[in-house]
Structure formats: structure tokens, C-alpha cells
Write a protein that binds this DNA or RNA. Sequence first.
DNA 1: TTGAATTAAACAAACGTTTAATTAATTTTT
DNA 2: AAAAATTAATTAAACGTTTGTTTAATTCAA
Lengths: 215, 215
Amino acid sequence: MEIELNEKQLQIMKKALEVFAEKGFDSASVRDIAQRAEVNVAMISYYFGSKEKLLEAIFMNNTQFMKNKIAAIIHSKAHGPFEKLDLLIDTYVSVIVENRDFHRLMMREQVLIKQGPLYSSIRDMKRQNRNLIEVAVKSGQKAGIFQKNIDISMLAATLFGSVHHFFSNYKFICEENNIPEGDDEAFNTKVIEKLKSHLKVMFKAFLTYGISNKK
Amino acid sequence: MEIELNEKQLQIMKKALEVFAEKGFDSASVRDIAQRAEVNVAMISYYFGSKEKLLEAIFMNNTQFMKNKIAAIIHSKAHGPFEKLDLLIDTYVSVIVENRDFHRLMMREQVLIKQGPLYSSIRDMKRQNRNLIEVAVKSGQKAGIFQKNIDISMLAATLFGSVHHFFSNYKFICEENNIPEGDDEAFNTKVIEKLKSHLKVMFKAFLTYGISNKK
DNA sequence: TTGAATTAAACAAACGTTTAATTAATTTTT
DNA sequence: AAAAATTAATTAAACGTTTGTTTAATTCAA
């Protein structure tokens, strides 16, 4: 299933991702992509077959990349349930931040993707993420420090939904926090870091709700 | 600012919203919309000026509707902070459920809307929602039952993000919960109701975190 | 010399919008 | 109240672009 990609193909995919994230798949024209990637329009059909298949290639590439990143957490030897949870939140948020363009594209287009390899790929990634949460929660429940009645789906919705919210509302949040748009560093330190600690605290509060606090 | 709309215009807007939500603004063609609304294509330009302005009309109509719904909460006489919070969550979720198509459309297109009346309209709605949370939280803090250090932006992200997650992942969630797609009743009772109570419990756990529990 | 890479041009299809003609409804005038 | 005049609603067709893709010729590399 591994497909080798030459430099030109990667260049097209990189620029295409930018344009797709910026304008959305449908509004992004192949001529625009070709121009930014500094290749002839015909090269897109030549290498990928079609605009649609170019999108598929980008999806396959990035979902695989993100899956690998997340999978690394599973095999890391985080000690207690709290550490597991913190690591999960930190990693997940960071992965999204590092792949902001792709994340935006995926979130935008996933509603319209109802079948095919793209759907399967996204679904697998979601399952993996969900399982990761489950592992962390169950380890805490076994240790007797997390409460028993936890709906993993709901917890996942809160985690992924909260993170996604900050990117789909990027401009609005920049306005509210007096951050100049495009200043990624300020956004990361002022917003993303706050988000991480918020999620950690909230999850702890929720998961230990009703359990005798031994702080 | 109130614009009177005749029956034909409302018919076009209704069907257009369906198509926009289904295919996205760019992929939805005016011919498709016209066909579903059973009018001639030219009627769209005739009544609204352009496809873009049709979108604007739909946005203005629905944001106003949703704003009014939410505003009603402010003036309701919910008693304690917990009741305020519960009412807020119930109402917000219900409003989204009842305007599913528009919510989907707005979430999808808002990333690309960076200025103009649409942006202002969406921003105002978000501000209003945010303020509503703030009122509920502050009333709890004054009563001494909520902890002091609460970041309203983060709480808003969690509420709106979680809710939105269930609609942008509609198909995935139906699969996981063995709900046939399109069975709105099953989705509402099995998923939406669970979401509501999950949010209520989680918010309570988080907001009272560290406060002596007098349950 | 063979095959891959690259190009400009052409392609048909679909797009949003406009036009000009016709029908329906409303208002004004007789 | 009937007729005439005016405005609004509706239509099919055409408009000019833009779209993704293909073709056929050419350049480049092995």
C-alpha cells in the first residue's frame, strides 16, 4: 500500500493542501494549485489522475502520518492514569497544531465524504483516537481513582470538539484575545497552551467526580 | 433592517438551505436549487440578486432566529446557578438540533467567511452565546458554589465544540451506536439526550472542582 | 533511441448570470 | 364595472467564464 512519491509529486501535494485548506476543495482550482506549485496544470492529471485523486493522495498521506504519531503514544510507557491522560491531550493537540492545514481540510470535507477509502481512513483514525482515551480511562478506573460511569464517546467528543473549535473559530478567537492573525507563536502560547491545561483540569475534575479527593 | 419575504422567496431559501447543507455552498448549483424549489433558475437572480446574496439572506434569517431563541434564555427566570447552566445547555443543544441544516452549513462555511455582514452576524451570535455562559458562571461564583478561576472562552469551546462534534461526525456516530442513518428520533434519544446530561455533569464537576461538595 | 517529463493549446461540460419575450397580476383611467 | 396601462412574475434561451481533463507536440534524461 506504500506508494513512493517523487519530489514533484510531494511539491504538488504540499501546495494543493495549502490551497484546499484556504479555499475548500471545490473552490480550489487546479490552475491555482499548479501555479503555486510552479508546474503545468497537466501535471496534476499526469501524476494523480484527477483533482479528486490528488485529494485522496493528500488524505492518505496525512492520515497515515497522524495515525503514526498517535500510535506512538500507545507504546510510550506513561506511568499513572493521570500521566496517560496528560500525554494523550498534549500529543493530540500538538499533532493538530502541527498539521493545521490538513486538519482544517479534513474537518471541512469529512461531512461530504460518505464512503470510499477516504471515509475508511478517517474512520480508522477516529477509532484509534477513541481507543486511546478508553485505555487511559480504564487504567484510572482499575486504579480506583476514576469514577466508573464514563461514556468514552462523550469524552472523545469533548476532547476533539474542543480542540477543533479553536481552529474553526481561529479568527474570532484571535479577535477576542487581541492576537494578530497569522501570529502562530502568540496563538500557540496564549491559546493552545491554555487549552491544554483547561482540558487536563476539566478531565480530571470530571473523571474523579465523586471520588474521595486525596490531594 | 427587517426585509419582508414572500412565499416564493421563502420556498427558494428553504430548498437552497437543504442543498447547501448537503453539498456545500460551492458545489450546490443554482440549477439544482431551482429544480428542487420548482422555480426557474432566473428567479434566484431575480429575487436575491445572486447565489452569494441568497446565502446571505439564508444566514441573516437563521442567525436572527437562533439569536432570538437564545436571547429568550436570558430573560427566563431560572433560579439557581445550576438551573441556569442546565437551561443553557438544554436550550443550546435543542436549537442546534432544530436547525441542523443551517448549523452544518454555517460550521462548514464560516472558515471561509472572513468579513462582511455574514461574519459580523456570526460573530455577534457567538458573543451572545459566550455572554450567556459568563452570566451563568458568575452567578455560581457569587453564590460561592463555583470555583473562581474559570476561563469562559475555554468553557464555551467545550460546550460548542462538543455539540458540533456530534453533527460533523453524524455518520460515524450512527455507526458506532448502531443507529440507522436518518433515524432522527433514535439519534436524538440515544445520543443527544446523553450528550446533554454528559455536558451538565461535566460542567458541574469542573465548576465545583475543589469546592466542598455538599451533596 | 526509448520512455518519461513537460508544455501550450484545445476540449466539452458546467457554472452563475443576463436577456428579451411572454404571461399574470395590479393599478389607473375611463 | 370595464378597459386600458402599468408593474410584477415567469420563462427558455443565450451569454461569457471557468472548470477539470485531454491531446499532441516537444524537451529532457537514461
